[in-house]
Simulated assay, not measured.
Amino acid sequence: MSEEPEFPEVLRCHVVAENADELRKFVRETDPDLGCRPVMRGGRTGVGAELYFRQDQLDRARSSRSAQLVDITTVENVTENWRARKEEVGDGDRFAARGAVPRGLGRKE
Rank of each mutant, 00 (worst) to 15 (best):
T73K: 14
G48K: 03
P38Y: 07
A100L: 00
L105C: 06
Q55N: 09
E4I: 02
V75H: 03
R103Y: 00
G46T: 03
S63A: 15
E29G: 11
E9L: 13
V89N: 02
Q68E: 15
D59E: 15
C36T: 09
G48Y: 05
Y52T: 00
E3Q: 08
A67T: 01
F53W: 05
Q68N: 14
A61Y: 02
V10Y: 11
A97I: 00
P5L: 10
R107S: 08
R83K: 11
G42I: 02
D59M: 13
Y52H: 12
M40S: 10
F95G: 00
G104Q: 00
E6C: 08
Q57T: 02
R37F: 15
G42N: 07
G104P: 00
D93A: 05
D91F: 12
G99P: 00
K86H: 07
Q57H: 07
G92C: 04
D91N: 11
G43M: 13
N81T: 14
V15S: 12
G104E: 00
T79C: 06
R41I: 11
R41G: 12
V78A: 12
I72P: 02
R37P: 10
E29W: 08
P5R: 04
N19S: 10
V89H: 02
L23K: 03
V16G: 07
R107F: 09
V70P: 03
E50W: 14
L11D: 08
D33I: 04
F26Y: 04
R54W: 12
D21V: 12
